[in-house]
Amino acid sequence: MTAPTNDQLANLLSRCALADQRAFAALYEASSAKLFAVAVRITRRRDWAEEVLQESFVKIWHHAGNYDADKSAPMTWMTAIVRNRALDWLRRPREVQTSEDVEAFMASVPDEGPGPEELATLAVQARELWQCMEQLGPDQQRSITLAFFHGLSHGELAKKLDKPLGTVKTWVRRGLERLKQCLEGMKAK
């Protein structure tokens, strides 16, 4: 199966905005496996990821009319919806959260971001991003990948990396600043 183009996805979204059920089914067919992988990666539980994906597609259906092809690529827009749902799901206030729950959650966090095989599948755009990631210090890089791929909060990062919260926040902040400079530099070339 070849990956759908941005134009194809944008077209499906615009038809969803007109309540075209078939377009919605095609959109789901074309994007759900990518988006489910994003949700699983962040929530680390299949059942949660299913809930997140379900809510995200309901939102995509209802808000397809808000999608603006001039402002973002369709997958960027949909990925942001899924990531935000997944992060909200992880961070939602829970009345009963024992220290054992927290331990179990932390234990399920892998030590690193994606491996070389997964990185090899990246699109060109992502390779640029990755080149910039590699220019970061190792601590900055690790904090940013753990946060992005596995949805760790500042506090969870500090715990995972066994460093003070302030240190981790600085790594993240400086890392993001450098990343942006590097990417903007590449675009300017």
Binding site: S32, A33, E50, Q54, Q125, F148, F149
Partner: peptide
């Protein structure tokens, strides 16, 4: 920032969700 970081999200092997997810989405809609 979404545009800058979102390509990184594609570094995940696609994973087909179970059929029930689509059924639930249909029910909800």
């Amino acid at each position: 920032w979404e545009a800058l970081l979102s390509p990184m999200a594609s570094a995940a092997a696609p994973l087909t969700p179970p059929r029930r997810v689509w059924q639930k989405i249909q029910q909800r809609i």
